[in-house]
Simulated assay, not measured.
Amino acid sequence: MFGMLPFERSDDNLFDTFDNFTRNFFRSSNASLPAFRTDIRDDGDKFVLEAELPGFEKEDISLDVKDGILTITAAHQEHSDQKDGKGSYIRRERRYGCFTRSFDITGIDETAITAAYKSGILELTLPKTVPAVPESRRIAIE
């Protein structure tokens, strides 16, 4: 009777064991993982974003800011050719990978963002904007 309630699904039915196993197995596949791992830390007056991009060169990474959105793109091409004495291919392999992630940077001073890449870690310093303090002025009474 409990399995007949609307909007509820019971996973303890003996007849659905295999169905639940395959559903849970494919749910935990890496298809839902982000393109690359990032850590974001709040250091008071700035945020520090660290992105793991192992195997990429600095030239493979591009950072773009448009309309309050920061986009990190890392693209890599690799070619491996092995030829015999006649110039014919014995083996030829190519790999290409491109990863992109976007972040909302509302409240960040876009002109002061800095980036460094070392040992497969891209580190971005994102300084926070200083909130504008409304000016007060005295009005003379005539």
Rank of each mutant, 00 (worst) to 15 (best):
Pro127Ala: 07
Met1Leu: 13
Arg101Leu: 10
Ala74Gly: 13
Asn13Glu: 02
Gly3Cys: 08
Arg27Asn: 15
Ala140Arg: 04
Ile61Phe: 08
Val48Gln: 15
Gly68Ser: 09
Leu126Val: 06
Leu70Trp: 05
Thr129Phe: 11
Ser10Gly: 13
Lys46Val: 07
Asn13Phe: 00
Ile139Cys: 03
Leu124Cys: 05
Asp16Pro: 02
Glu8Asn: 10
Thr17Lys: 00
Tyr117Thr: 12
Cys98Met: 10
Leu49Ser: 09
Met1Ala: 11
Gly44Ser: 12
Asp60Asn: 13
Arg23Gln: 15
Glu59Gln: 11
Gly55His: 08
Arg23Leu: 08
Thr38Pro: 11
Arg138Thr: 13
Ser136Thr: 15
Asn30Tyr: 12
Ala112Met: 10
Ser80Arg: 14
Lys86Pro: 03
Ile72Trp: 04
Asn20His: 02
Glu52Phe: 00
Glu50Asn: 11
Ile69His: 04
Tyr96Thr: 05
Asp84His: 04
Ala74Phe: 06
Asn13Gly: 00
Phe15Val: 00
Thr114Cys: 05
Met4Ser: 04
Phe56Glu: 13
Asp43Tyr: 15
Gly68Met: 07
Glu110Pro: 03
Ser10Phe: 04
Lys66Gly: 00
Ile113Met: 07
Val133Arg: 15
Ala31Tyr: 06
Asp12Gln: 00
Thr125Met: 08
Ala116Phe: 12
Arg138Met: 14
Arg27Cys: 03
Leu49His: 07
Thr100Tyr: 09
Phe25Lys: 14
Thr125Cys: 08
Pro6Leu: 00
Glu110Ile: 06
Gly107Trp: 05
Ser102Gly: 05
Phe103Trp: 01
Ser10Glu: 09
Ile69Cys: 04
Thr22Tyr: 02
Asp19Trp: 07
Ala115Tyr: 08
Thr114Pro: 03
Cys98Val: 14
Phe2Asp: 14
Gln82His: 07
Asp11Glu: 14
Thr38Val: 15
Ala115Met: 13
Asp84Arg: 11
Thr114Asp: 13
Leu124Phe: 09
Ser62Trp: 04
Asn24Leu: 03
Phe15Asn: 08
Ile121Cys: 14
Thr71Ala: 06
Thr111Pro: 02
Ala112Asn: 07
Ile69Glu: 11
Leu49Lys: 09
Glu57Ser: 12
Ile139Val: 13
Glu50Arg: 10
Gln77Asp: 12
Glu57Thr: 12
Ala112Pro: 02
Ile108Tyr: 04
Val133Tyr: 08
Leu124Gly: 01
Asp39Pro: 01
Asp16Asn: 02
Ser62Asn: 13
Leu49Tyr: 10
Ile121Trp: 12
Lys83Asn: 05
Asp16Glu: 11
Glu135Val: 15
Lys46Gln: 14
Leu63Ser: 09
Leu63Cys: 03
Ala116Ser: 15
Arg138Ala: 11
Leu49Met: 15
Arg23Cys: 14
Ile40His: 09
Pro6Tyr: 02
Glu78Pro: 01
